[in-house]
Design a protein around this nucleic acid. Structure first.
Lengths: 304, 304
DNA sequence: TAAAAATACTCCATAGGTATTTTAT
DNA sequence: ATAAAATACCTATGGAGTATTTTTA
């Protein structure tokens, strides 16, 4: 067995055809077929079922392929480690960012990262926390900027900053006269929420627990983005709990809307850079964390 | 790069000498030296510092070796998977067991395992939970029988049984007249505890929280084993909270000592078989779990 | 019959060997 | 002086190629 064999079987598993896999691996079809056959003989198990033109992994094969992916990931980490040792800040970073941060953080992050880490271009993936954790653990993402604790022993985090929540409301709203808002003063029935899967939704519900139980028809709306939520608020459908960076990016609505800070420690979220525990290139990730800390406005509290 | 190369560098890292490593890998020293040199050239990093007769990994090398171990572990899992597919119940199982279970469980487990899993001999490692988790995650152990939740996303558990705690006391003790004991009736000051690291110590303290704070000189003894604890109890130094299986194995002390069940759900521990999430040979581990469930006396409650 | 995988065979890159030199204690 | 690693050079295993056959949808 060797790493090349593992690349072959993973390619066949991914592409479903020996010929395609051979093409992908830049070898001839007989070469790839022969090596896989030899591997199957060595292991004493058939990895693929060849039923005529279709090819699929056997039960044992599926398990073997899973381990093969792990082995290849580790081998990839060796190469990444070696590159990192030669030039710690070289090589693109695949970065996941949650949707309630990406649009407001990227304008600060991207130019500064391009300046401070010129040899480490960022590849951004914007998705919900739940959809970022898998690729992160598998090594398909190098890091992700999240606002929740991933609670996985395969992952580590670097704290970036604490972002307070502000309450956004129509300028005509009675609470808008106050300088800051007590959480208890927020009517849970009028709080607009994002759809399931957004960590901000859970954080808003943690602050206003009864927000989940209201039955008013209009208040049952669930927006897919903060922008939508904001426009709903401007249209008078309710109030929005918005993270500080998002609020700062909404000057165009300042005529109709008012944002006020919320008192207490609960009304904030800790933003962190999460990466695999055994990630290579920790140095560039630390550097990226510093870029975020330095680039972010003073309206959030930097960590540590 | 090559799995063989990875074996070479791991061997050098483990044995500290190229020559010894070559011997271990069954190749000549020049062969191993040459391959490692070639790998270092390919990666563009030197993995080892050759300072005269001593050899040690460079900073980058240490990281590379860590990843190499991961890759080799995954490759080992492929072989194990293949063997398991040929004969699911073949091949020895390296099993860790905590000290407060091993002496009382093994007399039941070993004969039944030998009968029901004749081709899977058990290799036992008796140690504290904290010392078993590392080897378990690294793949040096196939499974471990523990009484606490390992809380690691790399590990999975198969519930085995719930083992109640009984209070062991001298026959002359006033509580010995009751059929069962209320936790509140136990004087925390007289409760004898194991040394740090034993999960049973923590479980006893969870049941009698104030047990940690007493200041009586004699009660500050910490025994390294349940057997010691029991003899201390027989000698009148205090009371012992003992798991059911241990109690059942002490007929020789029945004249002097009395054991009584404790009421309530808190006075028990859940025993489970813990293994790596990506362990191969799950089938034999499931089979082993069933052997434990079937072999254990009816005085504990089987799960699930 | 057409597309996909297996077989047959040839070739050469490279891991491995032995003999020897270099290096540092 | 000695033990360890590197170098030199030869051998042979096995991975890769092309051409062809087998298989089945």
């Amino acid at each position: 067995m060797n790493l090349r064999d593992l690349r072959y079987i993973v390619a066949v598993a991914d592409l479903g055809r020996f010929g395609k896999a051979a093409e992908f691996c830049n070898v001839s079809q007989p070469t790839l077929s022969g090596q896989i056959l030899k591997l199957e003989e060595e292991l004493g198990v058939s990895i693929f079922e060849r039923i005529g033109k279709t090819t699929r992994a056997t039960a044992a094969g599926a398990e073997i392929i899973r381990h093969a992916r792990r082995a290849l990931a580790a081998a990839g980490d060796i190469v990444a480690s070696a590159h990192a040792a030669r030039d710690p800040l070289f090589g693109s970073i695949r970065l996941g960012v949650i949707p309630t941060l990406a649009p407001y953080l990227m304008p600060f992050l991207l130019p500064l990262a391009a300046e401070r880490l010129p040899k480490a271009p960022l590849t951004l993936v914007e998705d919900l926390t739940g959809n970022l954790l898998g690729p992160l653990a598998e090594g398909e993402l190098d890091a992700a900027i999240l606002a929740t604790d991933p609670e996985s022993s395969r992952l580590e985090q670097i704290d970036l900053f604490v972002e307070p929540f502000w309450l956004v409301m129509p300028a005509s709203h009675p609470l808008s006269r106050a300088k800051s808002i007590h959480p208890a003063d927020i009517d849970p029935g009028s709080l607009l929420l994002l759809t399931d899967g957004h960590c901000l939704r859970d954080q808003a519900l943690a602050l206003c627990p009864s927000g989940a139980e209201r039955a008013t028809g209009a208040a049952d709306m669930r927006a897919a983005s903060l922008e939508t939520l904001l426009h709903l608020t401007a249209a008078g459908f309710g109030l929005t709990l918005a993270p500080r960076l998002a609020v700062a990016s909404w000057p165009h609505l300042s005529g109709k809307l008012v944002a006020r800070p919320i008192e207490g420690d609960g009304a904030s979220r800790r933003v962190r850079l999460v990466h695999r525990r055994d990630a290579p290139r920790r140095m560039v990730l630390e550097a990226l964390a510093n870029v975020v800390r330095d680039g972010v406005p003073d309206s959030v509290r930097r960590l540590p």
